[in-house]
Structure formats: structure tokens, C-alpha cells
């Protein structure tokens, strides 16, 4: 009983709020799977499209890296567009604003949800990619390296996707404007991720991803993570 504090006693700690919001997101997706199957299916279809658009049965190295990242990025755009739709239509954001919780709890919960979604999609899409298109195949060490790059890139994509998903949901042309804003912003992520993935997917002796690319990915995640944390409040209406 420590009621003698400057802050009101009935404020829910951010961690509890984030956990509750996360549970809600995952429950929603488990009850009515909407975003995840769409993203996974989109990835697989895109691999098929690439097979015919590039007119090749197998890819390796830089091309493989490019195919993988374009597919994942566009699948992520698909997911980002749906991230706030349920809350916007059902009034979930208003309910959250009424609750005595820190507003950034919503950002953290959504970003973690998005990272989880991306990771789950990749669990499906990357093996499909390896089976359908990748020429050299992947060793265990390669899988570890790829997972590291994927995770770092996913954090950046999730931060930008959450921030601009929340921004675009209030506009009239939300599905049009979200990829237009988010794709240029994610170009550095694509540059770094593609550069780091290319040696891993190369047919001639896979190499470790360059450290500086991973460092810039970390910097990107950090800068935009902090920025999103700072400005997210302004995207919610009073």
C-alpha cells in the first residue's frame, strides 16, 4: 500500500497494459485469422510471380536476397495496412484512451505484435523460398545468420509500419498512402538487409553478413524506435 505518491494510484503500469494489449491482439488473430494467412499467402504467390517474372527456376546471392526482401517488404505493407483497422472500426483506440494507461503502451504492443506477425510469416515464407527458388540451400549456420538479419530488419519495419499505419488509418486514402510513405522510409532497411543477406544466400561458399550493415540496421531501429516513442502520442486523438 504505497498510496503516498505524486501519481494517481489507479494508473495501470505500462508493462501490464502492454501485456493485456498483446494478449488482445494475439487472441483476435487466433479467433479470426485475417492478417497472418493473407501475408503468408501473399509471400508464396509473390515467389511464384518472381519465378515467372525473372524467368528463372532458381536464384542465388544478390538476386535471391532481392527477391526475398521485396516479397517480405510488400507482405509487411499488407500487414501494416491492417494493423489498426479493427481498432479504428470497433472503437478500440477510444476505449484505450479512456483507460488509465500510458498511450505509448499501444505503440509498444502494436510494434511487438507486428514483429511477431512478421516472424511468423517468415517462418512460413523463408522455407518456401528455399524450397521453391533458392539454389544453394541453407546450412544451419546460414539459418542463424539469416534469422539475425531478419530480426533486425523486422524491428525497423515494425516500427515504421506501426507509426505510419496509425497515421494512415486517419486519412481518407489510407491504403494508397501507407506504402507511398513507408516504402521510401524503409529503403535504408532494404539496402542494409539485402547487403547483409546476399553473402548468406550466395552459391559460392556462404559468408557472414558484413558487420557495418547490421550496425546501421541497429542504428535505424534505435533512432526510429525512439522517434516513434516520442511522437506516437500525437497520432491519438484526445
Amino acid at each position: 500500500m504505497t498510496a503516498a505518491g505524486p501519481r494517481p494510484p489507479r494508473t495501470t503500469p505500462t508493462r501490464t497494459a502492454v501485456a493485456a494489449l498483446l494478449r488482445k491482439e494475439l487472441l483476435l488473430e487466433r479467433r479470426v485469422p485475417q492478417v497472418l494467412p493473407a501475408m503468408a499467402l501473399f509471400s508464396v504467390v509473390t515467389f511464384v510471380v518472381f519465378r515467372f517474372a525473372l524467368d528463372t527456376t532458381s536464384v542465388e546471392g544478390r538476386t535471391a536476397s532481392g527477391v526475398l526482401w521485396v516479397t517480405l517488404l510488400f507482405a509487411a505493407m499488407l500487414g501494416a495496412g491492417r494493423l489498426f483497422v479493427a481498432d479504428h472500426e470497433e472503437g478500440g483506440i477510444d476505449a484505450l484512451l479512456l483507460a488509465p494507461v500510458d498511450r505509448t503502451a499501444l505503440l509498444i504492443a502494436k510494434a511487438i505484435t507486428f514483429v511477431a506477425f512478421l516472424a511468423l510469416v517468415e517462418v512460413v515464407a523463408v522455407p518456401v523460398f528455399v524450397v521453391l527458388l533458392l539454389e544453394p540451400g541453407l546450412s544451419i549456420a546460414d539459418v542463424g545468420r539469416l534469422a539475425l538479419v531478419l530480426l533486425l530488419a523486422d524491428i525497423g519495419i515494425a516500427v515504421i509500419g506501426t507509426l505510419f499505419g496509425a497515421l494512415a488509418i486517419q486519412t481518407r486514402a489510407r491504403d494508397l498512402i501507407l506504402p507511398l510513405m513507408a516504402l521510401p522510409l524503409l529503403v535504408p532497411v532494404v539496402i542494409m538487409a539485402a547487403k547483409a543477406t546476399a553473402p548468406v544466400l550466395a552459391v559460392t561458399g556462404s559468408g557472414a553478413p558484413g558487420g557495418r550493415y547490421l550496425a546501421v540496421l541497429c542504428l535505424y531501429d534505435l533512432v526510429f524506435g525512439l522517434l516513434a516513442y516520442a511522437v506516437f502520442d500525437f497520432l491519438l486523438d484526445d
Partner: peptide
């Protein structure tokens, strides 16, 4: 956000 992106993007492209 975009203003922050300007310098960061230059670093990334230069490294590329």
C-alpha cells in the same frame, strides 16, 4: 519523422 530520416538515409546509401 521524415526530417530525421534525411541524415540517416544518407549514411545508409553511402554505406551501400
Amino acid at each position: 519523422t521524415a526530417g530525421t530520416f534525411v541524415p540517416l538515409n544518407f549514411i545508409a546509401v553511402r554505406l551501400a
